[in-house]
């Protein structure tokens, strides 16, 4: 259960989800070789982006589901 995950593990899950989305999902415009998660060095884990996204959505009055993944 997500609530049982340790906070650092939750952050890793969310960061992995983020990097996976940016590199492997998203609309493909060029026909060029795409990159994969393995190409990116994930030693340092920054949560700035995720926190920013939570703040943005809260400003818009949208419910924030990320809480479970971050807290």
């Amino acid at each position: 259960m997500s609530s049982d995950l340790r906070p650092d593990l939750r952050q890793q899950v969310t960061l992995l989800d983020l990097v996976d989305r940016v590199l492997n999902k998203g609309v493909v415009l060029s026909g060029d070789i795409t990159l994969s998660v393995a190409d990116v060095d994930l030693v340092y884990v920054g949560l700035r982006v995720l926190l920013a996204s939570v703040a943005t959505l809260e400003e818009q009055g949208m419910p924030v589901a990320i809480g479970d993944a971050l807290r």
């Binding site: 983020l18 990097v19 940016v22 415009l29 990159l35 920054g46 982006v49 920013a52 943005t56």
Partner: peptide, 29 residues
Amino acid sequence: VTQEAVLRHAEVVEALMSRSRAVLPAQFS
């Protein structure tokens, strides 16, 4: 491709989401 670039891309997409009616995020390629 660096982690910083990936996060920056994500940050920009996130910001666009809140300022437009819809966004189709582009794949980082």
